[in-house]
C-alpha cells in the first residue's frame, strides 16, 4: 500500500485515490527537436529500481497534480512536493541522500 501526502490539500491519500502521471521532470521536445530526441521524449522512461521521481494527480480529492519522490523497490516515500517546479527541491534531495548515502541522482 502506498500513501502519498498531497501538498495541495494536505491529505495523506491512498494510492487508489490517485492517478499516476509517470516519470517527473521530463524536458519537453518541441518542433525544433530532431526525430530521435522527440521519440525519446515520448517513449523513453528511466524506470529505475530504487529512487524515482514521479507525477501524481489527487484525482479522487482536490484534483491537483503534484510530485513524489519514492523508492520503487521498497515503496519508501521520501516526500511530495509542488507540481510547479522543474526539478526536485533541495530538502527532498537531502532526505534521499540521508536515507540512500550512495545515491548519485538519476542521470
Amino acid at each position: 500500500m502506498l500513501l502519498l501526502t498531497c501538498p495541495a490539500c494536505g491529505v495523506a491519500a491512498d494510492e487508489t485515490e490517485l492517478a499516476p502521471g509517470g516519470e517527473a521532470h521530463l524536458t519537453r521536445v518541441g518542433p525544433d527537436g530532431d526525430d530521435a530526441s522527440f521519440e525519446g521524449y515520448l517513449f523513453q522512461r528511466a524506470n529505475p529500481r530504487g529512487v524515482h521521481f514521479e507525477r501524481w494527480r489527487h484525482v479522487y480529492g482536490c484534483g491537483k497534480w503534484f510530485h513524489a519522490a519514492r523508492d520503487t523497490a521498497t515503496l519508501e516515500v521520501f516526500g511530495t512536493y509542488s507540481a510547479q517546479t522543474t526539478a526536485p527541491p533541495d530538502d527532498i534531495l537531502d532526505k534521499i541522500k540521508a536515507r540512500r548515502p550512495g545515491w548519485e541522482g538519476n542521470a
Binding site: 495523506a12 491519500a13 491512498d14 487508489t16 485515490e17
Partner: peptide, 19 residues
C-alpha cells in the same frame, strides 16, 4: 473508503473528498 476515519485523523466538521 481508504480515508482514515479515526477520530484523531478525521475531525467533526471536516470534509474529505475521497473514494
Amino acid at each position: 473508503t481508504p480515508c482514515d476515519m479515526r477520530p484523531g485523523r478525521f475531525h467533526v466538521g471536516q470534509v474529505r473528498r475521497t473514494r
